[in-house]
Design a protein around this nucleic acid. Structure first.
Length: 645
RNA sequence: GCGCCUGUAGCUCAGUUGGACAGAGCGGCAGCCUUCUAAGCUGCGGGUCAGGGGUUCGAAUCCCUUCAGGCGCGCCA
């Protein structure tokens, strides 16, 4: 909401500068004074103008302060520091505007069409914490994009023909000697069983390197299709994907399309892309040198080596296939998948899957995006740059510019956590790498179970009488909030050294802290109702209050700083989208909750025991605004709000 | 060798396009529950922003350089 105000003020400031100083300001940026007493918005224009006008910032600030103080919505302006102009806003009007914006319905998506691809776990074993980091980042980014008006499609890419799936198939066939029927008859945690089996396959190859040829044969059979090996692989991948979907749904993460590698192969996306790349001259056939016989793509920037797209034996590299797929996402490949319904979520959202067989009618238009965000770990930066270069080389400069790699760092394990998982860790190690090959990692469901258990026991220690269903619902919400906040509070370029004890924290800068703020606020309404005060009547009464007066003074000042912080929310969401950094959202939600906790704590600001009906109405209004704002913010973070903690 | 990322309080991390005395959580110490649930609040202590140089009215932030750690650079996927 503060963005609108800033835009209005910026225009006024430009006019003023033009009229009084005869100078042009390109941008007017606002900052926030370090202390609330210093003002509500800080204008840095005098610094920007200093060079242009060859005058001291302070002098310019003094010249501007007078007229700035008379702008609409501003009650006074003060010069501060070396040349800031601090604006004091008209509190009543500002508060009314904020309240109106919080009451308004969210706007329907109308902006550019965007695809976000995230999760994309190899379908051969259970998901681990690192995968949850990917999914949480992607899911939260989607929520932020939608909030800012983008039309977003969520895709999860399934590499069902890769070497990882082949390895598990080798395990089933050659270690365990199982047929498809026997595998299908397995009960229990299939993804966990495959996790262990995958680790055993690593040992199996290591014990006799000649066994590696089983991997090659299996991979070949999977690609060829129409045989028992391929059918087993398809079964394993499909069943694991369903495990992953169930795991992610526990923390509120859903998808709209499962795009399968096998369909990209069968529908010949690559062949079409190859034709386009050759025709446009984007790739060239090398006749000599180390890459003789290969089709290569020149990397634009720097002295980088050419990237091989088609090998001298005529087969395409992984990166080549990825270029084809990216072209499809951007609507630059005149091929399409066919689609089938995979499942319907309980709220009616349909998850579609790609297919190369018969398609079903009713599928929305997938692909054809104006912008694409691929959420993939930072290790894939180079291939992602190649994909982008490939799109650009085809002459799609805009599409290439709109191809984003949302790169994030890995999750490693703290020595303590690795030891708890039964691994020997030397004293010197600061962290331990997760390894699917070794079966070393914290499984997502195990972590979530641990969080739920902890939440249940915390609840039980506070309220032993509470009924089981209510405990379960709250425990689930708290576990989700704790996990999502934990994974979101770090910047995405930061390696997270995962420590079980730290992840299980429910106090301090955590999801439960944020949730608890809202729960406490809501409990005020319940108490009010029990005491015979209607919330709606109080809110109605608040409409008639003199907010300028109430927002002055000691309590008013505290409320005012809470309102200003809340008003920054839209700006923060936009920042998260622009900087592709959702951690700022998490930090902001925490800051708002913190400001509220501090205010709420003081008995003298009690809503229930307010000195007058007007004060009660005023405080009710504040609490209501906080709940509304936090509902938006926690919704963006995917942090559910339990009825009670 | 080239490229990217990271280095800020004892620990884990924030720090917007350069801006006002460098912030939070945890841990430590001292307090606050017949008071809207204490998963909370208040106070105290804690920093040569890895080192050095430069640009600027102003640098944790930009440039150069050194050091330390991580990742990437394959006719693997």
């Amino acid at each position: 909401m503060i963005l609108d105000l800033q835009a209005r003020l910026a225009a006024a400031v430009k006019d003023l500068v033009r009229r009084d100083l005869g100078a042009e300001l390109a941008d007017v940026s606002f900052q926030y004074p370090p202390k609330a007493e210093m003002g509500d918005l800080a204008l840095t224009a005098p610094f920007d103008l200093a060079k242009q006008l060859r005058r001291k910032p302070r002098e310019i600030a003094e010249a501007l302060a007078g007229p700035l103080g008379t702008l609409p919505g501003v009650v006074r302006a003060e010069v501060a520091g070396g040349g800031y102009v601090n604006l004091f806003l008209a509190r009543g009007a500002f508060a009314r505007e904020l309240l109106a914006s919080l009451a308004a319905a969210p706007k329907a998506p109308s902006g550019p069409r965007v695809i976000v691809e995230h999760t994309s776990i190899n379908p051969n074993k259970a998901a681990h914490v690192g995968h949850v980091r990917n999914a949480t980042l992607g899911d939260t980014f989607v929520r932020a994009l939608r909030h800012r008006g983008r039309t977003v499609g969520i895709q999860n890419y399934i590499d069902d023909t890769g070497v990882q799936v082949a390895d598990v198939v080798v395990g089933f066939r050659h270690i365990e000697g199982k047929t498809l029927e026997q595998v299908a008859a397995m009960t229990g945690r299939f993804d966990y069983d495959c996790w262990d089996l995958y680790a055993r396959v690593g040992d199996f190859y290591a014990a006799d390197p000649s066994r590696k040829k089983l991997q090659a044969e299996t991979l070949h059979a999977i690609e060829a299709g129409g045989n028992d090996t391929a059918r087993l692989a398809a079964y394993v991948a499909a069943r694991i994907v369903d495990c992953h979907l169930a795991t992610m749904e526990r923390i509120g993460i859903r998808y709209e399309l499962l795009a399968h590698e096998s369909d990209i192969l069968r529908l010949h996306f690559w062949e079409r892309a190859f034709t386009l790349l050759k025709e446009s001259g984007a790739i060239r056939l090398e006749s000599e040198g180390k890459n003789a016989g290969c089709w290569v793509l020149s990397m634009e920037e720097g002295e980088e080596d050419d990237k091989i797209i088609v090998r001298s034996n005529g087969t395409v590299t992984y990166t080549g296939k990825d270029i084809a797929y990216q072209l499809w996402k951007l609507g630059k490949l005149d091929r399409d998948f066919r689609y089938q319904r995979h499942k319907t979520y309980d709220d009616g959202l349909v998850l579609w899957t790609s297919t190369s067989g018969e398609g079903e009618s009713g599928a929305p238009a997938f692909g054809h995006a104006d912008a694409v965000y691929n959420v993939i770990d930072v290790g894939q930066s180079y291939p992602q740059r190649v994909v982008k270069a490939g799109v650009a080389a085809l002459g799609h400069a805009d599409a290439a510019a709109n191809s984003h790699h949302l790169a994030y760092e890995k999750v490693t394990l703290s020595p303590a956590t690795a030891r708890a998982l039964g691994y020997d860790v030397s004293e010197a190690d600061a962290s331990v790498k997760v390894s699917g090959r070794k079966g070393l990692g914290v499984k997502a469901d195990d972590l979530f179970d641990a969080l739920e258990d902890k939440a249940r026991s915390e609840i039980a220690s506070r309220d032993p009488e509470r009924d089981a269903a209510s405990v379960q619902a709250a425990a689930r919400a708290i576990a989700t909030g704790a996990l999502r906040y934990f994974l979101l509070k770090f910047g995405r370029t930061k390696i997270i050294t995962f420590d079980m004890e730290e992840a299980l924290a429910f106090t301090g800068e955590t999801g439960p802290y944020v949730q608890n703020g809202v729960v406490r606020a809501r409990s005020i309404f319940a108490k009010l109702a029990a005491d015979g005060h209607g919330r709606d009547a109080l809110l109605e009464r608040a409409r008639g209050l003199d907010l300028d007066a109430l927002l002055g003074g000691e309590e008013g000042g505290e409320v005012w700083s809470l309102l200003v912080l809340m008003a920054r929310s839209e700006e923060i969401v936009e920042q998260a989208v622009q900087a592709e950094e959702v951690a700022v959202l998490a930090k902001h939600a925490f800051a708002v909750a913190q400001a509220f906790h501090s205010y709420y704590q003081k008995p003298k600001y009690s809503v229930l025991h307010a000195e007058s009906e007007d004060l009660r109405a005023f405080r009710t209004m504040v609490v209501d605004a906080f709940v509304r704002q936090m509902t938006v913010l926690t919704g963006l973070l995917g942090i559910p709000l339990p009825e009670r903690m």
